[in-house]
Simulated assay, not measured.
Amino acid sequence: MEILGIATNIAEITANKLVISKIEDGIDLIGNVYYQGYDNVILYEQNITPEFFDLSTKMAGEILQKFSNYKMRLAIVGNFSNYQSQSFKDFVYESNKLGQINFVNSKSAALKVLSEP
């Protein structure tokens, strides 16, 4: 895993493997990024276990609540049209509307949303 500072206070997490495979991984990531002084994070769908996107596991809720508690904004970049669950679609819609957690389809969209106040 590599944390790249790509813009003012935005960390991009890149890896050739899963970065988050369990709740503790998400919490560790927040701690590492927070310690390095970032309060905005770009994370890629392919680096997150598929269980995260199944809301019945409660993994997303627990990890994303920690992002909120630390006032850390997150943009998850991926293709979310593959997820057919209506509850997941509603979750994405509400998250994007609030702006703390964002589901976007490109790095440029992530940079845009995280650069807005």
Rank of each mutant, 00 (worst) to 15 (best):
D25E: 11
G37L: 09
I63P: 02
Y35C: 00
Q84W: 05
N47E: 11
S85K: 08
E24C: 00
N69F: 05
K97D: 09
L111E: 15
K58M: 13
K89Y: 08
N105W: 03
Y38K: 13
K66I: 10
I63E: 05
G31I: 02
I27W: 11
Q100S: 01
Q100D: 03
M59T: 07
S108D: 11
A110K: 10
K107E: 15
L74S: 02
F88H: 04
K66Q: 14
S85A: 04
V33K: 04
F103Q: 00
L64W: 00
K107F: 12
G26L: 07
P50Q: 11
K71E: 12
M72D: 09
K71Y: 08
E45T: 05
M59A: 02
L29K: 11
N69W: 05
N32C: 03
I42T: 11
G37H: 06
Q100E: 02
A109G: 06
Q100C: 00
Y44D: 09
A60T: 00
N69A: 08
P50L: 06
V77W: 09
L55C: 06
A75E: 11
E51D: 13
A109L: 09
F88G: 04
T57D: 01
K89C: 04
D28L: 14
L98I: 12
N102C: 03
K58L: 14
L74R: 03
D39S: 15
I76K: 03
A109H: 11
I27M: 10
I23F: 02
G31W: 04
N32D: 15
F80E: 09
K58Y: 13
Y93W: 14
A75V: 15
I76Y: 02
Q65R: 15
Y93D: 14
T57Y: 01
D25P: 11
V92D: 02
D54V: 01
